[in-house]
Design a protein around this nucleic acid. Sequence first.
DNA 1: AAAATCACG
DNA 2: ACGTACGTGATTTTC
Length: 873
Amino acid sequence: MVAKKILLLDGNSLAYRAFFALPLLTNEHGVHTNAVYGFTMMLQKILEEEKPTHIVVAFDAGKTTFRHETFSEYKGGRQKTPPELSEQFPYLRKLIDAYRIKRYELPNYEADDIIGTLSLEAEQAGDEVIVISGDKDLTQLASPSTTVYITRKGITDIEKYTVDHIQEKYGLTPQQIIDMKGLMGDASDNIPGVPGVGEKTALKLLAAHGSVEGVYEAIEQQKGKLKEKLVENEELALISKKLATIERNAPIDIKIDELVYSGPDHDELIQVWNELAFKSLLEKMEYTAEETVKEELEFEVLQEIDAAILEDEMAVHLELYDEQYHTCDLLGVSLATAAKTYVVPMDVIKHSEAFKTWFRDDTKKKYMSDSKAATAAFYRCGIEVGGVDFDLMLGAYIVNPSLTYTDMANIVQEYGYTDVAQNEQIYGKGAKKAVPEDSILNEHIARKARTIWEVRPLVLKKLEENEQFELYYNLELPLATILGAMESLGVKVDKEQLTAMGEELSLKLAEIEKNIHWSAGEKFNINSPKQLGVILFEKLGLPALKKTKTGYSTAADVLEKLEGQHEIISQILMYRQLGKILSTYIEGLLKEIHEDGKVHTRFQQALTTTGRLSSINPNLQNIPVRLEEGRKIRKAFVPSEPGWLMVAADYSQIELRVLADMSKDESLIDAFKHDMDIHTKTASDVFHVPIEQVTSDMRRAAKAVNFGIVYGISDYGLSQSLNITRKAAAEFIDTYLKSFPGVKNYMDSSIQSAKKNGFVTTLMNRRRYLTDINSSNFNLRSFAERTAMNTPIQGSAADIIKKAMIDMAEALEREGLQTRMLLQVHDELIFEAPPEELEKLKVLVPQIMENTVQLNVPLKADFAFGDTWYDTK
DNA sequence: AAAATCACG
DNA sequence: ACGTACGTGATTTTC
């Protein structure tokens, strides 16, 4: 047996130390993290330097201890623990658990006593002990086998108190530290000591007489004022000594053998660090992450594919060099069954008719991960995909949409599988990124197909357990293929049109820039909020209405309030508006046009927490529409075939209809059944006026309330959007909820169910976990509550349009139409179509969208068409 | 790499 | 009292 090295940490004391030593850091939710951070830094350092075999963190339990029976004012007069610190203790506990370090506390005893008791036990067993605290009291525990580490100034700076060091520093033995406290007291613990005796006197007395008792035995040797004080306060000195004495026989019920430290739970630690936003530690961890020992994998590299090896069910993986699968290199394919793993180089795949035939065969089941990426990448080599029966990434996303799904290694880690490397480990990152030698590459690729095969049953089991198999198998999985086809098809963009608009805009912008500089009286970078802030709020003396973390806010809503106070404001707003169009939607979009004159976005299907899609490279879900200047960009989105038309169909008020369905609110249901203008109807109910008397201002206010309801309303949010006081907004909301009691009931029950189950669900049983719903932190909890209200609405709407897309693809196929679905923008679908199919589409498209699910209100879809996307209105 | 801003539903 | 509307992505500046 290797000698034990036992680490005993004083949790409370170290947390306090760290808290006061470091500036108040916060994570993105406004939770303070400095104490936890300091504790972590200290712990990391000790773990590295000392390599302990056993660890425990002791905490104080409750407010009173046995010491209060002796002296009721013990620790009296102490400042209450600052709330910024107390909120950190739950995180500290979480952190310690992630390290798989034992925590211990004992009612009626302090952390000191737990440490004292354990250190005595260890000493008697002959084990080495390190005690760590911020409190010098603990130095009394030093012994030949026990060293006491006391933090200095910072938190990682440590002073090591051995028996020798104490002797050198004070001329005392560790036991005499107690006597010193007895004489001089301790202000921080409110231990009185003998008034008038400080460190100097105490040390002198102990040097001469050895102990408090010794001093009093020879009390006659003292004289004058000192003698007087000593005699007067004999009882106080003895009580103080007792208080300062650490109990070394506390009734603890843990044994040292239970404290074995075998390293952290890395996944858990990463999660906790992420939550706390400990970026530097996370990076360091990645850097030093030891290669986990992977089980040996035997695989065969094929130079030719024999059709006989292609089975009815196989895991298939196409390795891609980066995320941009529309253009990146294809590095190879791997195949796996229960018994075998193969790797096939790309040139072999491209020339293998056996593979191509098998791959497009719908009856041969393929188990993949991110099948959409593979579909789109294979499409470029003319290889068709059929029979995708499992998608690891999508399955895992349905199980928990809150995690990130980029690297297969990270995905499967959730399922306890660690035999596949992270891409970054294989390829490197940044400038150093490169394809490694074949042996490394092949093993990596081989492991991916193996991983899919191995993890598939675990994911399927979870999906079954959560009753999400249907959602996964009949919605997300077929949708992946459809999205892949939409992406590969792409959308034609009129390059000349964009370029011309860009030139015109550039001239206009230069003109505005000149005017702004003239108005400001100097040249500066208008795009810099920092420089702009200085100009507006210092030089021009305009009132700074709002601040950001780093300075003045110059956001549009702030500037709009200043309009009219200075000519420069509207110039800046115009400059911003046009600048955005130029940089993002003209220059940015031009860069994304491929050789075929089209843009090929990627719809991320495993990203959002609500179930929506997202669109990147380029983002085609945020092309301007609200303002005319920006809307013109849509003129550049044109059909890819001459004479064809762009077609757009969008759901009308889908989220509020979903709300009506889920809340069963009679008034809301009634409004949609009668196809009323929902904002006008809301205004009529809230303001208690007949429909005909609703003014445009009333409707505008009601519209904002409806938005708020969908977002998980708060008075503050509404007050911001309507520019009214919070109180007025609160009253507004109150009136709304009285008018729509079903909605009120839905909001409450949604939060209740989240609190009870830890998650909320959508129409099609999509799930989102809300870990903060019971948090004691107001911000976190409020956010979770709003999410509990919003996610079922936004998510159900996403479910519905996804199903409509599947129905639509099927219908286009069934009807033998040439019309192509190109884009989805959350509640609308964009197509390109030959004009002769238009009459049919006018009926078909809304019909499919409106009937893809049956709610207790009708769904409504509007249809439009034109020569460009701009004209679909 | 983060913050600020602004485009969309 | 606490400080925020829900969900995204791209660009620019700043550190």
